[in-house]
Design a protein around this nucleic acid. Structure first.
Length: 425
RNA sequence: GUGGGUAUAGCUCAGUCGGUAGAGCCCCGGAUUGUGAUUCCGGUCGUCGUGGGUUCGAGUCCCAUUACCCACCCCA
């Protein structure tokens, strides 16, 4: 038997009842970022596989088993982007946007990771990313965090916790990594299966284990903060001072590690406990070595990304989202001549009153049913054009949301009368 | 990749011990001619996820499979 075609696992349609929510969120983001002077960039969804391998890191889960990679018709290895930073860096390098200048950029779009879907985690998911280039100080780190805090406020999201950590420079982190591997290597027998694997892939992750049997071992592990050099330490302290000065609350989380290889110094996450296991709603950090790593002149950079589905889930849980837009006017008609006239009339109303949403009934349908639809559309008034009205050169205005009696106005006066009605609200 | 749960109408869900498939919502029609949301009456809608098996008989029991959900892993 033939199977119905359905959406790819982990990839979802956004239906009309939800698009309104997305648009609201996007408008909010656009507005806030605009106020900080950030500019939107749009990159391709597909890049050379090599780009992601070189930026995200060969031994990360993303590169090893989560990428949608395929061969192009001419034999190129291509990958559906699993995150946005790599492509953004590639784009600014390719177009010389880092030549003697700083950049504050943002983008939005789908990312793809072949993971097992669950709440808040999908194979195609939407991210809004923000990246800045050419600024090395903690002030730009703080600015990014201010942006996020302002965004939560604008959206009405509260209850998020900001977690903060410093990973040090690439050298410091490498040194720390070695110490960790040495330490856990000595206690190899005490490691659980996951941690043994992490020992090679991402030893910093071991610190974040959820296994209580490992708690003691982890507690005795060397601490990254002890290995930070003077520069890293000052950067981190200054950032904290800036956050405090601006009244942005945060929690120092020494176990906060990012999964991608390119991070250094500042890393942060906004988390919630209301979304199940996928509690990170926004995360980012500094990646001062990535630009050089991808062939550019060494350029400091810092950025973050938000998971749009997760933010929407939060907003929906709080009932913070606007209703789907309703119609303002529904035009019902009856009779052949009226049907033709109705469409023309609707056009005229749209010409004169562009802010109104005008639905004209199309096709057949009992008069009664048309009113039913008018009601259902949410329209405040129904315009009635039947044989009688047509003969008299009039149009009926029926108020659907209050007790006002139905009016009849000359067709020429309709626009003026409608303007009056909708002006009052 | 690993584990657990679920699958019945467009939606939300009942369905007893194995005995002919149900409700609410939605949609459509009607309640004196051309007027909605309330009320009343009537109506449409199902490969009971899919494929096998047990049985006189399976939505129900068994096996397999697929999809979805949740968690692990990982991450936004």
């Amino acid at each position: 038997m033939e199977k119905n075609i359905q959406a790819i696992r982990g990839m979802h349609d956004v239906l009309p009842s939800q698009t309104r929510h997305w648009q609201y969120l996007e408008a909010c983001v656009r507005e806030v970022l605009g106020r900080y002077g950030y500019q939107e960039v749009r990159m391709p969804i597909v890049e050379f596989t090599e780009l992601f391998k070189r930026s995200i890191g060969e031994v990360t889960d993303i590169v090893e088993k989560e990428m949608y990679t395929f061969e192009d018709r001419n034999g190129d290895r291509l990958t559906l982007r699993p995150e946005g930073t790599a492509g953004c860096v590639r784009a600014v390098l390719e177009h010389g946007l880092l030549h003697n200048q700083t950049q504050r950029l943002w983008y939005q779009g789908p990312m793809f990771r072949h993971e097992r879907p669950q709440k808040g985690r999908y194979r195609q998911f939407q991210q809004i990313g923000v990246e800045t280039f050419g600024m090395a100080g903690p002030d730009i780190d703080a600015e990014l965090i201010f942006i996020t805090a302002r965004l939560w406020k604008a959206l009405g999201i509260d209850g998020l916790e900001l977690q903060l950590n410093s990973l040090g420079t690439a050298e410091e982190r490498a040194a720390y990594r070695q110490e960790l591997v040495a330490y856990f290597g000595c206690h190899h027998d005490a490691l659980d299966e996951d941690s043994r694997r992490r020992l090679h892939s991402n030893p910093l992750r071991i610190l974040d284990t959820k296994n209580p049997d490992m708690a003691e071992l982890v507690a005795g592990a060397p601490v990254l903060a002890d290995l930070l050099g003077e520069g890293s330490r000052r950067h981190f302290e200054q950032l904290q001072t800036l956050l405090k000065a601006a009244g942005v609350r945060f929690v120092f989380n020494p176990r906060l590690v990012r999964g991608l290889d390119y991070y250094s110094l500042t890393v942060f996450e906004w988390v919630t406990d209301r979304l199940g296991a996928q509690g990170t709603v926004c995360a980012g950090g500094r990646y001062d070595s990535l630009v050089a790593q991808l062939g550019g002149r060494s350029t400091p950079a810092v950025g973050f990304a938000m998971g749009v589905e997760r933010l929407i889930a939060l907003l929906e849980a709080d009932g913070r989202l606007p209703e789907t837009a309703r119609a303002d006017i529904y035009l019902v008609q009856r009779g052949e001549a009226a049907r033709r006239e109705a469409l023309v009339l609707a056009e005229r109303v749209r010409d004169a009153l562009p802010q109104l949403r005008v639905l004209a009934h199309c096709g057949n349908g009992a008069f009664k049913a048309q009113f039913k639809r008018a009601d259902h559309s949410g329209a405040r008034i129904a315009l009635v054009l039947g044989e009688d009205e047509l003969a008299r050169g009039e149009i009926g205005i029926k108020h659907l949301r209050n007790k006002l009696p139905q009016e009849a106005v000359a067709v020429d006066c309709l626009v003026g009368r409608l303007a009056e009605i909708f002006d009052k609200s």
